[in-house]
């Protein structure tokens, strides 16, 4: 029995590994620029570019994803057949805070372009669902994940962005490509993973990764440090500055009134 399984495994490995070789060495080379995004006081989203080349017969898919984290959610339900309220909670484990896929204008995973083909590719939201762990009954977790996707999409943190990948002239071996990664303004500092895939015949033929560093600088960095390391002092300062601003405004207005 064990032997059979190992043979099967070995065979499937051969199949998977064999593919790139059979298709005359599909490849993808990518360069990320810039490699870091700074969040300053006036930050309002950013653009990051992935450029490189890929084998001529393959398509490029770029995935930008954040670190896995655990997200606690409240579930909404109906009581008395009339009133909506939060009924119970559920936690999704190991789910990225950001998950953006960039594809070209007419990229289709396969001819049919059904959503489940993303699953075959191991990309898209279908792949994400396999990776996460939901702390609720099996039957319910499907629905919870769907609603979670809606929530993330409404925030602009999960998306499949079409038309962001463009190709240059085809040369002998490959073609150049350029992907424009729109980084949303609602961004938390940390490490992000940029993966570039060469997709051919409905499977991933080659893959390369890079890391995108996001950090706060200047005023946001200063305020975050103060707020998280010296909470009491921060709160006190916030209250005092608010009172001062209120008094100042009062004084300005009194001057105006004194004139009449």
């Amino acid at each position: 029995m064990l032997k059979k399984i190992s043979i099967l495994l070995a065979l499937s490995c051969c199949l998977v590994l064999g593919r790139p070789f059979s298709s005359a060495a599909s490849y993808v080379k990518a360069h990320l620029s810039p490699e870091a995004v700074d969040i300053g006081a006036f930050f309002n989203g950013a653009q990051v570019y992935v450029t490189g080349d890929v084998s001529r017969d393959a398509e490029v898919v770029v995935r930008l994803s954040g670190m896995g984290q655990n997200v606690a959610l409240k579930k909404k339900g109906k009581i008395l057949g009339l009133l909506w309220m939060n009924l119970g909670s559920v936690t999704i484990h190991n789910v990225p805070n950001l998950y953006l896929i960039y594809i070209s204008k007419d990229f289709k995973p396969t001819a049919g372009a059904q959503p489940d083909k993303w699953e075959e590719l191991g990309l898209g939201f279908a792949a994400l669902k396999k990776q996460v762990d939901i702390s609720s009954a099996e039957a319910e977790s499907e629905a919870v994940f769907e609603e979670f996707l809606k929530l993330k999409e409404s925030e602009g943190l999960y998306a499949i962005e079409t038309g962001q990948v463009t190709y240059g002239e085809a040369e002998s071996g490959g073609k150049s490509f350029r992907a424009v990664l729109q980084i949303p303004p609602r961004l938390t500092p940390g490490k992000y993973l940029v993966e570039t895939f060469a997709v051919k015949d409905a499977s991933v033929a080659a893959r390369t990764t890079a890391e995108l560093q996001v950090k706060q600088v200047g005023l946001p960095a200063f305020i975050s440090r103060l707020a998280f390391k010296h909470g009491a002092l921060y709160g006190l300062l916030a209250a005092i500055i608010a009172i001062a601003a209120g008094l100042l405004m009062g004084v300005i207005f009194k001057g105006e009134k004194g004139a009449h």
Partner: peptide, 23 residues
């Protein structure tokens, strides 16, 4: 005043930039 200091101290949820513009 009481709520601001308590929230800043125990929950780190006071965004001073936001508060200042509102203010």
């Amino acid at each position: 005043i009481n709520v601001t200091i308590l929230q800043a101290y125990s929950n780190h949820t006071v965004d001073f930039v936001l508060a200042l513009i509102l203010l």
